[in-house]
């Protein structure tokens, strides 16, 4: 079955992610739970989803996080289906995962339940609806921790209220190169949103990929939070497009074709290098400078050739072996 990242990823908005934080009432949060409480809570949640009235369960499987390897866990982080913290501490943790990996429910991360839904492109309301239905299903058989004043109760007070974190992953090479991205980061922080670079330290980003998400969860409804995020996203798309139009055409084409040439011919390709060229290829495809057999290839390959994904595929920790294989994959797919 194809994965969530194999469709709708060719635009400026690469993907949309919704996360709902939920907890069971009257049981300590994961940070203060003992192992038998953890086992019991996991079982309750799994029963509620897998044996619930919904047709959803036939597409879901339960992953025993104790039983998977480090490489498998890291590869899940690279596919965006679990958090780095969840990959690090897997003891008695469970993951409920859909076949296309667009739905992942982490049990025992920072909260008892973290419902996550991921889709390619800008699909804030569609993805929220899926997460919302799962939450409603859970609340049919479980008592979810909720307070009239503070809303859904979460381990970290930053998630109180709706427990909703919605984010979009944006490809912003033009705004990055003009430096406008840092001004935008200041501007969005004043209206309860945050933007941060992905795949990089601090505010930087390796492939000009940025994540825009809501910060405030208390005192703002799900719908308003999504509306806000959507309207700022639309403005970012427009700014990126306008900025891109002002670029010198020939030098833009030159850098796209140079990157294309390298990906088509390289025999060794490190993951850092790959990220940089994929970003160029992605611009090239979206502006019609180059054509690939499928416009989703740049993001698909970027995810599938991350270090742990390659280590898993080759069953090897050898970095140069990975670089050889990564180069081979790109040579085949860039033709």
């Amino acid at each position: 079955m194809s994965k969530w990242y194999e469709s709708n990823t060719s635009g400026i908005v690469v993907s949309t992610r919704i996360r709902l934080a939920r907890n069971l009432a009257g049981v300590p949060f994961p940070g203060r739970m003992n192992d038998s409480q953890r086992t019991e809570v996991n079982k309750k949640i799994i029963d509620s989803i897998m044996n619930g009235s919904s047709a959803l369960s036939k597409d879901l499987k339960v992953v025993d996080m104790d039983s998977i390897s480090d490489a498998e866990a890291l590869a899940m982080v690279e596919r965006h289906i679990i958090s780095p913290a969840f990959a690090r501490n897997r003891k008695n943790r469970r993951l409920i995962l859909s076949l296309d990996e667009s739905i992942s429910i982490m049990l025992g991360e920072e909260d008892h339940i973290r419902i996550q839904v991921l889709k390619g492109g800008l699909q804030l309301f569609e993805t929220y609806e899926i997460a919302n239905n799962i939450d409603t299903l859970l609340s049919e058989s479980l008592t979810i921790a909720f307070d009239e004043q503070l809303g859904y109760l979460t381990e970290c007070p930053t998630n109180l209220g709706t427990g909703l974190r919605a984010s979009v992953m944006l490809h912003l090479p033009a705004l990055e190169s003009t430096g406008e991205i840092s001004q935008l980061a200041d501007a969005v922080s004043k209206i309860g949103l945050t933007i941060r670079g992905m795949y990089g330290e601090g505010s930087g980003s390796k492939a000009s990929l940025y994540q825009l998400s809501n910060q405030v969860t208390l005192g703002i409804s799900e719908k308003s939070a999504l509306d806000n995020l959507k309207s700022i996203t639309m403005q970012m798309i427009e700014r990126e497009q306008v900025t891109c139009k002002n670029f010198d055409k020939i030098s833009l084409e030159d850098s796209v074709f140079r990157s294309f040439g390298i990906l088509k011919n390289a025999r060794l390709l490190s993951s850092d290098e790959m990220m940089q060229y994929v970003s160029q290829i992605k611009i090239g495809v979206s502006l019609g400078i180059i054509k690939l057999k499928d416009e989703n290839i740049p993001i698909k390959l970027m995810i599938e050739t991350q270090p742990a994904m390659m280590a898993l595929k080759l069953n090897s920790q050898d970095a140069s072996e990975r670089d050889i294989e990564r180069a081979k994959i790109f040579r085949e797919q860039m033709s």
Binding site: D147, L150, P157, T158, G161, G219, S221, K223
Partner: peptide
């Protein structure tokens, strides 16, 4: 915690979805 929540979120009263278990 109210003062910290006020600084963090700007508001201290939930608006939005409520679970079925609520009154």
């Amino acid at each position: 915690l109210m003062n910290s929540l006020q600084r963090m979120h700007g508001k201290t009263k939930h608006v939005g979805k409520v679970p079925q278990s609520a009154s």
